[in-house]
């Protein structure tokens, strides 16, 4: 299937990516080609087939609710772009 420029713009917005006007045509074409490839799936008869999320159909394991981690805030924040007094800084959200 092929998608329109507006679709590509909308997907980019959902994915928090900016696509310039010049790139938009190329990316719309690329996405259309990829979705055409994906459309081959329609040919498969999947009636009564359970979707497969894990190769061995394993389920998430639960661990006992014990404290195992120590506080690493300083180490983790050392690699952050901007912090202050243990908080991550971002542009002002509330006026």
């Amino acid at each position: 299937m092929s998608i329109k420029r507006e679709d590509a713009e909308n997907i980019a917005r959902l994915a928090k990516l900016q696509i310039s006007d010049e790139q938009l045509e190329k990316i719309t074409g690329d996405l259309s080609n990829i979705l055409s490839l994906v459309d081959q799936l329609k040919a498969a008869n999947t009636q009564d087939i359970e979707p497969m999320a894990h190769p061995m159909d394993a389920v998430q394991r639960l661990r006992p609710d014990h404290i195992t981690e120590t506080d690493n805030r300083e180490a983790f924040q050392k690699i952050a772009p901007a912090t202050e007094e243990g908080l991550y800084l971002v542009p002002k959200v509330i006026e």
Binding site: V38, L41, K42, A44, T46, I49, E50, P51, M52
Partner: peptide
Amino acid sequence: YYRKAQQVRRL
């Protein structure tokens, strides 16, 4: 898409 692909994955 996703559900269909996961079904094909089982096939």
